[in-house]
């Protein structure tokens, strides 16, 4: 009985470490920042869940495993938000994004001319208002 628990825990921890190795390899293999972020998000969610589930199996269901569940819940809420914010930062800061991935025509032109898209939209809205008032 105990040996099954050990084998299950070892399998889960080994799976988690394998995912972490794959994520680390992905950090070095890709060329662009957004691809590397995709690989890092793998480690933040799947790898830590498998490892911590292995530890939960290894130590039985008591207060310690409740704390481990709490860590998993917190990380599964917080890590995707981190990835979202970092992707937002990258899209704002990167000036050569139109060469690296597909963008809509308007966004591509704005990136090439280094103009802010929200300002262009505001100018367009003002022009439309003036035209409607003029009529």
């Amino acid at each position: 009985m105990e040996i099954f628990r050990f084998i299950l825990a070892a399998l889960l921890i080994a799976g988690g470490l394998f995912v972490a190795i794959v994520a680390c390899k992905g950090m070095f293999k890709f060329r662009f920042v957004l691809n590397r972020m995709h690989a890092a998000a793998l480690c933040d969610t799947l790898s830590i869940m498998l490892v911590l589930m292995g530890l939960v199996v290894a130590c039985g269901f008591n207060l310690v495993s409740l704390k481990l569940f709490l860590i998993i819940v917190f990380l599964w809420f917080a890590s995707p938000v981190s990835s979202h914010l970092l992707a937002l930062l990258e899209v704002t800061i990167n000036e050569h994004l139109h060469e690296q991935c597909d963008m809509t025509e308007a966004k591509r032109l704005c990136k090439e001319k280094q103009v802010d898209l929200s300002e262009v939209k505001k100018d367009l809205a003002e022009e439309e208002k003036e035209a409607a008032n003029g009529k």
Partner: peptide, 18 residues
């Protein structure tokens, strides 16, 4: 600052009390 982010606000409603 960047504009207030809906995703961050929704998650913060759950995480800040925690």
């Amino acid at each position: 600052d960047p504009e207030p982010d809906m995703i961050l606000q929704t998650v913060a409603r759950f995480l800040v009390p925690l």
